[in-house]
Amino acid sequence: MSESLFDRIGGEAAVDAAVDLFYRKVLADDRINSWFDGTDMERQHAKQKAFLTMAFGGPNSYSGMDMRAGHAHMVAKGLNDSHFDAVMDNLGATLTELGVPADLIAEAAAIAESTRNDVLGK
């Protein structure tokens, strides 16, 4: 088990395959899509890609403080666990749709889950 999750899940190609699917699910999800009203789609798409790269265990330099600072304005407007849960649902559904094995999905979900407290400013 020396190979990283990022390599086992398919690397950058897997991120490229997932990002449109994932962002589309997020935009179609009435639980969370109002958070994205008025945002620049290209830049948001790039952010979703960065998030997936991180969840897939890929190269990233996000710190807990970055996560806190980046979401503080949303926390102030009521971002909470139910929204985070919705993102987790969409992440799982995307990977399932792409045929990623369940154990790898669980690993990616665990990485994403590890950011919950920072994202929600807890």
């Binding site: 990002v19 449109d20 962002y23 589309r24 935009l27 789609m41 290209e42 798409h45």
Partner: peptide, 15 residues
């Protein structure tokens, strides 16, 4: 342009 960008993306076009 901006509203249609979202609609065509949701309709399956890649970003």
């Amino acid at each position: 342009v901006n509203s249609t960008k979202k609609k065509v993306f949701l309709a399956g076009a890649s970003m």
